[in-house]
Simulated scan of single mutants.
Amino acid sequence: MTSTRISRRTAIGMAGVWMAAATGAARAQAPYPSRPVKLIVPFPAGTSPDVIARLWGDEFARATGQPVVVENRSGASTIIAAQAAANAPADGYTLLWTVNNTFSINPYVYKKLPYKAEDFVPVTRILSVPYVLVISNESRIRSLQDLVREAKARPDAMTYASAGIGQGTHVAMARWLNQAGLSMTHVPYKDYFLPDVIAQRVDIALDASTGAIPQVKAGKVRALGVTSPQRIEALPDVPAIAEAFPGFVGDSWHGIFAPRGTPPQVLAALLAQSQRIVSGSDFRAKLKGYGLTPVGEPPEAFQRFLDEDARAWAKVVKDNRIAAE
């Protein structure tokens, strides 16, 4: 009969291995989140995505007891932030809060990107962002019909501002001009363009509802239309552009993404918390006050939306030969 003896040193070593394995298993099964969550936002502090991301973060922290740390990584059409998020550990503790440029526009505007859509998994689309077509309140143009008549009478003479080549405000405007059969001169900006619209240095622009609505209410710009399929609660007297141009839609959106490989139970917890937040009456009221439309759809529906969104914007980019380095 053979006996097996284990030395004291070996026993201690094996006990250490077992303890480490048990600790690892306990961590794997720990409720999510068990520590602070970092939310990468591709825009500066105080911008619409930053403000809404922080509102979401406050609600998430209140429900889970874990703080949400917003990291603003602005610049390069969301590319810097997307690259940082793509390279983060896939553990649910670094997330990307972004807009349509990252996945629906950039892949068609830029020849090379340091990230791919496949680097991420969609968690949920939080909201839809209508753009508002605005003109100086001092302009003699009073309606969308006035604008169309003026633009048809003077092809390429009228100017429109945007946040830059290939940005949502540029591509959405190009989409409408195509449908309306109009031609205007694009003036891309590196900084905020609305002051030049107010001063009539440039004729018109599409601006996100969050930026446009305060200027409309202050009487500095006149709203001619919104890019959402229907009118929005914050501007009930402003028509949807689709009322005059059926089928037109040009909204952006905010959504949450996680690095690919994030555990399913973590994604499920993120979705549950996000849908609870979006369904809350206070959160919804705040979004609607900014002119935003709450969504909160699950990942499968979000992915279908992303596929359709990308196809639509890819066509606009191609038809208008929009390219950036």
Rank of each mutant, 00 (worst) to 15 (best):
R5V: 15
M14I: 15
T23F: 14
A26T: 07
R27N: 15
A28D: 12
A30I: 12
A30L: 12
P31M: 11
S34V: 06
R35I: 00
I40T: 02
V41T: 02
F43W: 05
T47V: 02
A53C: 06
A53Q: 00
G57K: 00
F60W: 04
A61H: 02
R62L: 09
A63K: 06
A63Y: 04
A63L: 08
T64K: 00
Q66H: 05
A85W: 01
A88Q: 03
A88N: 09
P89H: 02
A90I: 12
T98A: 06
T98W: 00
N101M: 14
P107F: 05
Y108V: 07
K111Q: 15
L113I: 03
V121F: 09
V123K: 05
T124K: 08
R125N: 14
R125Y: 07
I126P: 00
I126G: 07
L127K: 07
S128R: 14
V132K: 01
L133F: 04
V134C: 09
R140D: 12
R142Y: 09
S143H: 08
A153N: 10
A153H: 09
A161R: 11
G164P: 04
G166K: 03
M173G: 10
N178K: 06
Q179E: 11
A180T: 01
G181S: 02
G181V: 03
L182H: 07
S183I: 07
T185K: 14
P188V: 06
P188C: 08
P195G: 05
P195M: 05
A199M: 13
R201K: 15
R201N: 15
S209R: 03
S209I: 03
T210Q: 03
A218E: 11
K220Y: 13
V221L: 00
L224R: 02
R231Q: 08
V238Q: 05
I241L: 11
I241H: 02
I241Y: 03
I241N: 02
A242R: 07
F248R: 07
V249N: 15
D251M: 08
F257P: 02
P259A: 04
P263C: 07
P263S: 04
A268E: 10
A269K: 03
Q275H: 03
Q275W: 08
R276Y: 05
S281N: 13
R284W: 05
K286D: 10
K288L: 08
G296D: 01
E300K: 05
A301T: 11
A301S: 12
R304E: 15
F305K: 05
D307T: 12
A314H: 13
A314L: 05
K318Y: 06
I322R: 10
